[in-house]
Amino acid sequence: LSQDQINEYKECFSLYDKQQRGKIKATDLMVAMRCLGASPTPGEVQRHLQTHGIDGNGELDFSTFLTIMHMQIKQE
């Protein structure tokens, strides 16, 4: 990932990090990914979360979000 991409991801991540705690809700993951041009299915989002041990009510930090985005873009 280039620095530009990382900055773009950070900007989008921040939109969903409403309390500015450095985390977004798992329920916002799909929308955040789509905001960056990825098109994950609900099943793919579920798999990404399970891979990282996050349940549907959990939260993920930016580095986890980056990893998930990277995996998603590689497979699209």
Rank of each mutant, 00 (worst) to 15 (best):
K25D: 10
M30P: 14
Q19W: 05
F65A: 03
S2E: 11
L1K: 09
G37P: 02
F13Q: 00
D61G: 10
N7V: 09
E59G: 06
Y16S: 02
E11N: 15
N57A: 13
N57G: 14
V45D: 10
T27N: 13
L15I: 13
E8D: 13
I68C: 09
G22W: 02
S14T: 09
A26P: 04
E44A: 02
C35D: 15
S2P: 03
G43L: 10
T27F: 06
R21N: 14
I73T: 13
F62L: 08
M69S: 10
E8L: 04
I6T: 09
D4M: 10
G53V: 01
S2L: 05
L60R: 00
G58Y: 01
T27R: 12
N7R: 12
M33C: 05
K10M: 12
N57V: 05
L60D: 00
Q20A: 07
K10I: 09
G43I: 04
D61I: 02
M30F: 08
D17C: 04
V31L: 12
G22H: 04
V31D: 15
D28R: 05
M33E: 01
E11H: 15
R34Q: 14
L49Q: 15
A32L: 11
I24K: 00
T51N: 02
K18V: 07
S14V: 05
G58P: 03
K74G: 12
K25E: 13
Y9R: 02
S63A: 07
L49T: 03
K10G: 07
S63C: 11
G53S: 05
H70A: 05
A38W: 14
T51A: 06
E11D: 13
A32E: 00
F62V: 05
Y9G: 04
I54V: 09
L15D: 11
M30C: 11
C12K: 13
D17W: 01
S14F: 05
L66H: 02
A32V: 13
I68H: 01
Y16V: 04
Y16M: 08
N57W: 15
I6M: 14
P42S: 15
M69F: 06
L1F: 15
Q19R: 08
Q20D: 06
L66Y: 01
K23N: 08
N57R: 14
Q3A: 09
E59T: 14
K18Q: 09
V31R: 10
E11P: 02
L29G: 00
E59D: 01
A38Q: 11
G58Q: 05
L36W: 02
A38R: 13
M33L: 09
F62M: 05
T27S: 09
D61N: 15
L66K: 15
K25R: 09
K25I: 07
A32P: 02
D17G: 02
I68Q: 02
L60I: 11
D28K: 08
V31P: 11
L29Y: 01
K18S: 10
F13Y: 03
I24T: 00
M71K: 02
Q19N: 09
V31I: 10
F62P: 01
I6Q: 13
Y9H: 06
I24G: 00
A38K: 08
Q19E: 09
R34H: 08
F13N: 00
M69G: 06
K74W: 06
R34P: 02
G58W: 01
E76K: 08
K10N: 09
I6E: 11
Y16D: 01
E59F: 02
N57K: 13
F13T: 01
L36Y: 04
G58N: 15
G22C: 03
I6L: 12
A38N: 03
G22K: 08
Y16Q: 04
S63N: 09
M33D: 00
F13I: 01
V31W: 05
D4L: 07
T27G: 13
G58I: 02
P42T: 01
Q19S: 09
D17L: 01
E11Y: 10
E8C: 10
G56P: 15
Q20T: 07
K74S: 04
V31T: 13
Q20S: 11
G43M: 07
K10H: 14
E11M: 10
V45R: 04
F65C: 02
R21H: 08
S14G: 05
V45S: 08
A38S: 14
V31M: 13
R34M: 07
L36S: 12
R21S: 12
D61Q: 02
G43S: 15
A26H: 04
A26E: 03
A26R: 03
E59I: 04
I73V: 03
G22E: 06
Q5F: 09
K10Y: 07
D4K: 06
L49M: 08
G22L: 02
P42V: 07
M30W: 08
D61A: 15
N7I: 14
C12I: 15
Q3E: 13
C12N: 07
I24P: 00
C35F: 12
M69R: 01
I6C: 02
A32K: 00
Y9K: 02
G43R: 09
L66D: 05
Q3G: 09
T67A: 11
A38E: 15
Y16K: 03
S63M: 09
K23C: 13
T41A: 03
V31F: 07
Y16W: 10
T41S: 02
I24R: 00
L29H: 01
S39G: 12
K23G: 03
R34S: 13
D61P: 14
R34E: 14
A26G: 10
R34I: 11
A26S: 12
E76F: 04
A38D: 06
V31E: 14
K10L: 11
G37H: 11
C35E: 13
M69D: 00
S63Q: 14
F62R: 03
K10P: 01
G37I: 01
E11L: 07
Q19G: 08
A32Y: 00
L66S: 09
S39A: 12
E44Q: 02
L49F: 03
D55N: 13
S39P: 13
D28Y: 07
E8A: 13
M71S: 02
P42M: 01
Q20V: 05
K18W: 05
L29D: 00
M69T: 11
C12A: 15
I68R: 00
N57E: 09
A32Q: 01
D28A: 06
M33Q: 01
K10F: 10
Q20I: 05
G58H: 04
P42L: 05
